[in-house]
Amino acid sequence: MSGFIAGGVPTTAFPISNSDFWPEIDGQHLRAAMRITDAVTDDRLEVAAVNAMIEANRELAGYRTANEAKGFTTLADVPAEQINGESQLLHLYRRVIYCSALAELVERYSSFDATNSGEKKVTEEETSADQLRRDARKALRTLLGLSHTTVELL
């Protein structure tokens, strides 16, 4: 993932709009929070974020429907504890999007080298993408009020 750390970070703001219930995503906040440099263009970052938003919104469709039935028109309206002056649900939603988007970028920007060091780098990046997906899944389950562990007796 070192390709995302080195280099500059663009400062031109760009919002990524969402449906009415879900918050828009600030592309520059995503870039800064996840340490994504200008090696990834705004267009590519937007594509990854939009894909993450589509998947998250699809998985959270039942949650949205249930809360809209209770009269809440946005995620920010759903009662929740505040952290840093904002609903913890908004923080969790952004974490789902940020981690999912970066996981996609890590996979798409992976480089391959036939040497052992190149193989090791690809393996590290795959692990990193898996870790990011795990973090996204954990945030999604927390948002839904579900346990992070599923145990089934056979």
Results as ranks from 00 to 15, higher is better:
2 S>L: 05
3 G>H: 10
4 F>P: 04
6 A>S: 03
7 G>D: 14
8 G>K: 06
13 A>I: 01
15 P>N: 13
17 S>R: 11
18 N>K: 08
18 N>D: 04
22 W>A: 14
22 W>R: 13
22 W>Q: 12
22 W>Y: 15
26 D>M: 06
32 A>Y: 06
32 A>P: 03
34 M>H: 09
35 R>M: 14
35 R>K: 13
37 T>M: 05
38 D>Q: 14
43 D>L: 13
43 D>V: 13
45 L>T: 03
46 E>F: 04
46 E>T: 03
46 E>Y: 02
50 V>N: 03
51 N>K: 07
51 N>I: 03
52 A>E: 04
60 L>M: 08
61 A>D: 08
61 A>R: 04
63 Y>R: 12
63 Y>D: 05
68 E>N: 13
69 A>G: 07
69 A>N: 12
73 T>W: 08
73 T>A: 12
74 T>K: 13
74 T>Q: 13
75 L>E: 02
79 P>F: 14
81 E>A: 01
81 E>V: 01
81 E>I: 00
81 E>W: 06
83 I>C: 04
84 N>K: 11
87 S>N: 00
90 L>V: 14
93 Y>A: 12
94 R>C: 06
95 R>F: 00
95 R>S: 13
97 I>E: 01
98 Y>R: 08
99 C>M: 01
99 C>D: 10
104 E>K: 03
105 L>D: 06
105 L>K: 09
106 V>F: 02
109 Y>S: 05
110 S>A: 06
110 S>K: 04
110 S>D: 01
112 F>N: 02
113 D>G: 11
115 T>S: 05
118 G>Y: 11
118 G>E: 10
118 G>P: 07
120 K>Y: 00
121 K>R: 12
123 T>E: 01
123 T>V: 09
124 E>L: 15
125 E>A: 10
128 S>K: 15
128 S>V: 14
135 D>W: 12
137 R>S: 11
138 K>T: 02
139 A>I: 02
139 A>H: 07
139 A>M: 07
141 R>L: 01
142 T>V: 04
142 T>I: 03
144 L>S: 11
145 G>Y: 13
148 H>A: 14
149 T>K: 04
149 T>C: 04
152 E>C: 07
152 E>V: 14
153 L>K: 15
